[in-house]
Simulated assay, not measured.
Amino acid sequence: MRVGYGGGIPPNIGEGDRAAGADGIRENLDPSWLRGDPPWVDLFTVWLREAIESRIPEPNAMVLGTADADGRPATRTVLCKGADAAGIVFFTGYDSDKGRELAANPYASVTFPWIALERQVHFRGAVTHVSMEETEAYWYSRPRGSQLSAFASEQSRPIGSRIDLEAKAAGVADGFGGFDDGAEVPVPSAWGGFRLVPSVVEFWQGRANRLHNRVRLTKDDAGWHAERLQP
């Protein structure tokens, strides 16, 4: 199945703005757009805000890629819960599949696939735990039901049936006084946040005829370097 991007009129040399895609921006993504400290943060903030304003489903959803100690990769979708100059933050169980893989190989990638806007942003870098203060601040901002479910779940471990899962969650809820009200639910000891600290960031903008725009930032000892990539 082939899906088109933007119009079907091939742009002539020097008329690349005729290849505008669904993001509504006629100008072509260019390395000069990358400003800020670090240089990815301003454009990413704008694109994330525009994804939210466009009301696409789960605009903060991102595909997280990890690898185990033997280098075997796995991907899954998680929610970004923080994005600033320090990096990209998400929360999970430390004993989950991804938590164990990050313990064995603390390097990951994330992709924000804003397909409806014909935009993507990719991050790669080392992953560290966030502070306990950050974990607690996020935990206590969550709805009580989400806290209880996370407390009940031995994430990524097998369970016999949906009924068993619901009964386990109900038992935990009863222990704290109920789903709607009761005692404060503490942060589980094996649950918390990770921060991906980017060393590679790539912005992708869909264009007509698959002649997409790709701009990559790479960090080394001398700082950040931007370059245009062929699609």
Rank of each mutant, 00 (worst) to 15 (best):
R124W: 08
L196H: 00
I9G: 01
A103W: 00
P231L: 00
F179S: 07
R55S: 08
W114N: 09
P198E: 06
P10K: 14
D220N: 15
W139M: 04
F91R: 04
D174L: 12
D23A: 00
R195P: 01
P10D: 10
A152Y: 13
R76P: 13
G4P: 06
T218N: 05
E50K: 10
D23R: 02
A167L: 14
A152I: 11
V63W: 00
L117T: 06
R124S: 11
E50F: 08
L229N: 11
A86G: 12
S189E: 11
P38N: 00
L148D: 03
Y5C: 02
A183V: 02
H129V: 06
E136W: 02
R195D: 02
G182L: 12
F112H: 03
L217Q: 06
F112P: 02
D180L: 12
A137W: 02
E27W: 08
R2S: 14
G182E: 08
I25K: 10
A67R: 11
A170T: 07
K168V: 03
G36P: 00
V130D: 08
A226V: 04
Y107L: 08
V130F: 10
T218G: 13
M132S: 13
T111G: 03
A116S: 15
D221V: 09
Q230W: 00
D180G: 14
D68R: 08
A74H: 10
L148E: 02
A173L: 07
E118D: 14
G125D: 15
S153T: 15
G6M: 06
G193M: 04
N60Y: 04
T75L: 14
S153M: 07
V63L: 05
T77F: 09
A169I: 15
E154W: 00
F179L: 06
F203S: 12
Q230D: 03
T66Q: 02
E202N: 15
W33C: 03
Q120C: 10
S153I: 05
G4F: 11
T92A: 14
A85I: 09
G99F: 14
L217V: 07
G171M: 05
